[in-house]
Amino acid sequence: MTPNQTDRLATRFIQFLVLIVVLILLFLLGDIIISGLPHISWHFLTSPASSFSAGGGIRDQLFNSLYLLVLTLIISFPLALGSAIYLSEYAGDNWFTSLIRTAIEVLSSLPSVVVGLFGYLLFVIEFHLGFSILSGAIALTFFNLPLLIRSIEGSLHAVPNSQREAGIALGLSNWRTIRGILLPMALPGILTGIILSAGRIFGEAAALIYTAGQSAPILDYTNWNPTASSSFLNPMRPAETLAVHIWKVNTEGVTPDAVSISAGSSAVLIIIILLFNFGARAIGNRMYKKMTGGK
């Protein structure tokens, strides 16, 4: 075989492998959407789940997922922001900084089930928080922090150094320069990072099974008192999320229509995550245009 023939053959082979990957994705999306969409109805989205009979919905799971997402972001964003500011603006080039970076890398490489079990051990058991949204949100925070820190640090890093110098040369403190000049410029990137991490939080289940729990008690959506046990806002109640629900109905095998519930829930999950991804890109682009003055 001449080199040219080998070259052509190799190119064909690579194209073939790429085609398979694309087909896998199309199959996955097709399977989820085609088998899931027929099960999505107003009833499915707005009625509570039923364990032992068919026809249950996902209302509470859907709400729990969203509530958990919001709580997680409220806890993890300030922490990630502070840490990213430290790493990008204050950290010197020394052993301490590399220790911190190693710690964050270790955190990001931990399997989410280990992070979940740690949350279970510390918050559910030691601190007696029980299976609760709060425990779940804290566990998800651990899992979300490295990703968020990395994306915020990246966005801060992308701000030209001349902006830092401009601020400092005016006699501004570093902190004021960071807050008033660097952060607004990094905002599109930071927002994109938050939304992308939101997609990940939304689909995460392993860290939640033993922290937020696997049960969804009846919720009272008219009770706005967060301390009432039946209130939908109570952060101390156990809360099964949509992703955990999919796992549970499939592994417990007591719900008769487990397959159609999972199919519908998977489709809902995927659609929401897709919306997050598109939203992240759209917001990022739009804010970037607005900031650079190209209206």
């Binding site: 030209p160 001349s162 902006q163 110098e165 401009a166 601020g167 400092i168 040369a169 005016l170 006699g171 000049i181 607004p184 410029m185 900031m291 650079t292 003055g293």
Partner: peptide, 17 residues
Amino acid sequence: EVRKHIGMVFQKPNPFA
């Protein structure tokens, strides 16, 4: 305070966004 009294303008214009 030093920088308030001794201002600086850089090589490349760097206005804030």
